[in-house]
C-alpha cells in the first residue's frame, strides 16, 4: 500500500501537511526542507513543482514559483532531488503542479519518474475529473499513483459524490472561494460549509487547505476534517529563514500555538 494511503488508514485526525515550492528559496532547498519537516513531525508534504502560470495560486506561491524557476528548477532536477531523499525520509510526498507540466514531459515518463522518486499522489488542480477518469486513471494506477481532487464551497453535492467516488486517499477541501493564501481566521460561513461536508459522510477523509496559516485555523480545521494543509504561510516563513530551526519552530507553533 502506498505510504499516503497507509497514513490515512492509521491516523484519523490532526493530520498536518505542509506545502513547499521546490527550488525555493534556493535551488537545493528541498534537500533541507523535507527532512526538517519530517523531523518537526509533519505527517505528509506537498512538494510544489514550480510552474510559469499557476492560476490557482495566490501571490506568495506565485512569487516563490517564479523565483524557483529563476533558480533553475525544472522537473529533472525536481525528480532527482526527491529520488535522492527517497531513502532518507519516511513521510509521504505528494507532488503538486499543473497538468501542462505532466503532458509536456510525457505522461508515462512523468509518472514513472514520480514512482521512482517515491511520490504517493499528485495534485494537478487543472486536471478535470472527467478527463482524469477517461484518459488518466488507468495510467496513474499503473504507476501506483492517485490523483487528489479539490472541492470548494461552490461544489454541488452531486459533484462531491462523484469526486468521492473517483478518490481513494483523501479529498482536498478548499476552505473558501479563493486562490491560495493566508487568512487569519475561519468565518462562520466557512464553518457551516465544513459542517455540511462533514455531514455528507464521504467515503474518503477530507483535508482542508487554502487559508490555513496558524494554530487557530489549523485546530479549527481539524474539528471538521482529518487534517489541514498549510502552504503560503510556510513559504513566507522559509523566504525569511529556511533553517531547520526555523522550520521546526514554525511547525511547533502550528501544532501547539504561540
Amino acid at each position: 500500500m502506498n505510504k499516503l494511503k497507509r497514513l490515512f488508514k492509521e491516523k484519523k485526525n490532526n493530520i498536518l501537511s505542509i506545502y513547499f515550492t521546490a527550488g525555493y528559496p534556493v535551488l537545493d532547498s528541498a534537500l533541507k526542507i523535507l527532512p526538517a519537516l519530517e523531523k518537526a513531525g509533519v505527517d505528509f508534504v506537498e512538494a510544489g513543482m514550480p510552474f510559469s502560470d499557476p492560476m490557482a495560486d495566490g501571490p506568495v506561491i506565485q512569487q516563490s514559483s517564479e523565483k524557483a524557476l529563476k533558480n533553475g528548477m525544472n522537473l529533472d532536477i525536481y525528480f532527482s532531488q526527491l529520488e535522492y531523499l527517497k531513502d532518507k525520509i519516511n513521510i509521504p510526498v505528494v507532488a503538486m503542479g499543473y497538468v501542462n507540466q505532466m503532458m509536456r514531459y510525457g505522461e508515462e515518463r512523468f509518472l514513472q519518474r514520480c514512482k521512482d522518486a517515491g511520490i504517493s499522489a499528485l495534485i494537478l488542480p487543472d486536471l478535470p475529473l472527467k478527463i482524469y477518469l477517461n484518459d488518466y486513471k488507468i495510467l496513474f494506477e499503473k504507476y501506483g499513483l492517485t490523483n487528489i481532487f479539490l472541492i470548494t464551497p461552490q461544489t454541488s453535492e452531486e459533484r462531491i459524490r462523484e469526486i468521492d467516488n473517483a478518490s481513494d486517499t483523501f479529498i482536498y477541501m478548499v476552505s473558501s472561494s479563493s486562490t491560495t493564501g493566508t487568512k487569519e481566521k475561519i468565518s462562520a460561513e466557512q464553518k457551516s460549509y465544513f459542517e455540511r461536508i462533514k455531514n455528507l459522510n464521504l467515503r474518503n477523509p477530507t483535508v482542508i487547505g487554502f487559508g490555513i496559516s496558524n494554530h487557530e485555523t489549523f485546530s479549527n480545521a481539524c474539528n471538521y476534517a482529518a487534517g489541514a494543509i498549510i502552504g503560503s504561510a510556510f513559504v513566507k516563513t522559509v523566504s525569511e529563514d529556511s533553517s531547520e530551526e526555523s522550520i521546526i519552530n514554525f511547525v511547533r507553533k502550528i501544532k501547539e500555538g504561540e
Binding site: D76, V99, Q101, M103, D126
Partner: peptide, 22 residues
C-alpha cells in the same frame, strides 16, 4: 509551438521542454 494547456484550453502554445510557458 507544441500542444499543451494554456488558460484552461488544450491548444498550441510556446513552451520549453518542461512545459513552462515562454
Amino acid at each position: 509551438g507544441s500542444p499543451g494547456i494554456i488558460h484552461g484550453s488544450r491548444t498550441l502554445l510556446m513552451q520549453d521542454e518542461y512545459g513552462q510557458i515562454t
